[in-house]
């Protein structure tokens, strides 16, 4: 069976799940409701039609499968590699600042708009992200990649932070 037919089957299954499991469990009103003594469209109607559209697309793909394209195991490994880089770097972005401010009584929140504290997470996490991705793309741990990453993160941080009072760098809106 061609890879496009597998794709069609997967999306058919997804649309069935959407229409018969997700929508009934996760919408308040039904397809059609009676409100103020008149029929109105409920919140479940549009998602249900959307599910049907995905099923239609899957059916047409089954009918006219193309050639080639598929997600290989190599693609999956690449996705996992990227995901690892993102998890590590975004965790650094989120927690590096609060961890380094643990010595303060009030913690990180009052410091979130005060340099250098407000930069810690972004600079370290950004360096890790750019360095990691560069290394992944060029298949070797590139020290220069991390150096470029740090410089780029610093420039991006200054680009947003210096001219604009109102903007918060990651993660300072979450703390």
């Amino acid at each position: 069976m061609s890879s496009d037919r597998w794709l069609a089957l997967s999306f058919l299954a997804i649309s069935v799940l959407i229409v018969f499991v997700w929508i009934p469990l996760d919408t308040e009103s039904g397809l059609i409701e009676k409100e103020r003594r008149k029929f109105v469209i409920g919140d479940a109607l549009a998602p249900t039609i959307t599910g049907a559209i995905i099923a239609l697309g899957a059916f047409l793909t089954w009918l006219r499968p193309g050639r080639g394209h598929t997600i290989s195991s190599k693609n999956v490994i690449w996705i996992l590699l990227l995901l690892t880089i993102f998890i590590i770097s975004l965790v650094i972005v989120r927690y590096a600042g609060p961890v380094s401010a643990m010595g303060f009584v009030d913690g990180y929140r009052p410091l979130r708009a005060t340099p250098p504290w407000s930069y810690i997470g972004f600079l370290l996490g950004g360096t890790a992200m750019i360095g990691g991705l560069t290394s992944a793309a060029s298949r070797r741990l590139s020290i220069r990649g991390f150096a470029v990453g740090f410089a780029a993160s610093l420039i991006i941080a200054l680009l947003y932070d210096l001219p604009f009072d109102d903007l918060l760098l990651p993660p300072n809106g979450d703390v």
Partner: peptide, 11 residues
């Protein structure tokens, strides 16, 4: 290239 995949994408 594919109508079916275009419709899935839209959905």
């Amino acid at each position: 290239g594919s109508v079916g995949k275009g419709i899935i994408s839209m959905g």
